[in-house]
Simulated assay, not measured.
Amino acid sequence: MPPGMPLRPRLAVTLGDPCGVGPEIIVKALAKLKDNSEALPLVIGDRLAVQRAIDLVGAPLRIQTVEDPSEAPAFSEEGTLYVKTPSSLGLDDIDYGRPTPTACHSIVQSIRIAVSWAMEGKIDAMVTCPIHKANLHLNGFAFPGHTEFLQELTHTPHVVMMLAGPRLRVALATIHHALAHVPRLLTPETLRQTIEITAHALHRDFGLSVPRLAVAALNPHAGEAGRFGNEENDIIEPVIRSFSDSFCRVSGPYSPDTLFHRAYEGEFDAVIAMYHDQGLIPVKLVHFYDAVNVTLGLPIVRTSVDHGTAYDIAGTGKAQPHSLLAAIQLAATIAQNRRNLPGRP
Rank of each mutant, 00 (worst) to 15 (best):
D290R: 06
D95C: 15
L280S: 11
Q193I: 10
V170I: 10
F288C: 03
Q329G: 04
G223L: 08
P2H: 04
D35P: 08
A217D: 09
R338M: 03
L81V: 01
A217C: 07
R10A: 00
V57K: 09
F149S: 01
H132N: 12
G90P: 06
H176P: 00
E267N: 06
A217E: 07
A216W: 02
V115I: 14
E77Y: 12
E231M: 03
M162D: 00
M5I: 09
G145H: 08
I300S: 00
D245A: 14
L296E: 07
G223E: 06
I44L: 15
S76H: 09
P282E: 11
R62S: 12
L153Y: 03
V305S: 03
A178I: 05
H181A: 15
P321T: 00
C19E: 05
I197R: 14
H176M: 00
H261A: 13
S37V: 15
A222S: 13
G226A: 04
L163T: 04
D124Q: 08
W117C: 12
L136I: 01
L153F: 07
Q51D: 13
T258A: 09
P101F: 08
F149H: 05
Q193N: 15
S242Y: 11
P86M: 12
T100D: 07
Q64P: 12
I281E: 11
T174Q: 00
S242V: 02
I281H: 07
I111D: 02
A199C: 15
I175T: 15
T333V: 11
G16H: 04
Y82K: 04
Q64S: 13
P220Q: 13
M161V: 06
A222T: 05
M5S: 09
Y289L: 10
Y254I: 10
P99V: 11
A331P: 02
A134D: 12
H261P: 01
F149I: 07
H203G: 01
G252V: 14
A273L: 07
T316I: 02
H155I: 09
E78P: 05
V127D: 02
D245I: 05
G20I: 04
D234K: 11
G297A: 14
L89G: 08
E231A: 02
R262M: 08
S323C: 02
Y82M: 06
Q151L: 04
P101T: 05
P86W: 10
G223Y: 13
H177W: 09
E189D: 14
V21I: 08
A59V: 00
R112S: 07
Q278A: 12
R184M: 06
T80M: 13
Y311H: 15
D306C: 04
I272H: 06
P130I: 07
S106E: 14
A164V: 13
T333D: 11
A319P: 00
N293W: 08
D234T: 06
R62W: 12
T258H: 11
A327V: 08
S110R: 05
Y96L: 11
P183V: 08
N36K: 06
M126Y: 01
G45N: 06
A59I: 03
D35E: 15
E148A: 01
E67G: 15
T316E: 11
A263Y: 07
V83H: 06
P321V: 01
L208D: 08
K318V: 05
R262C: 07
G140D: 04
G58K: 04
S88L: 15
L163C: 01
V182K: 06
D124S: 12
R241F: 11
P99T: 10
A291H: 04
L202A: 10
G20P: 05
D46V: 07
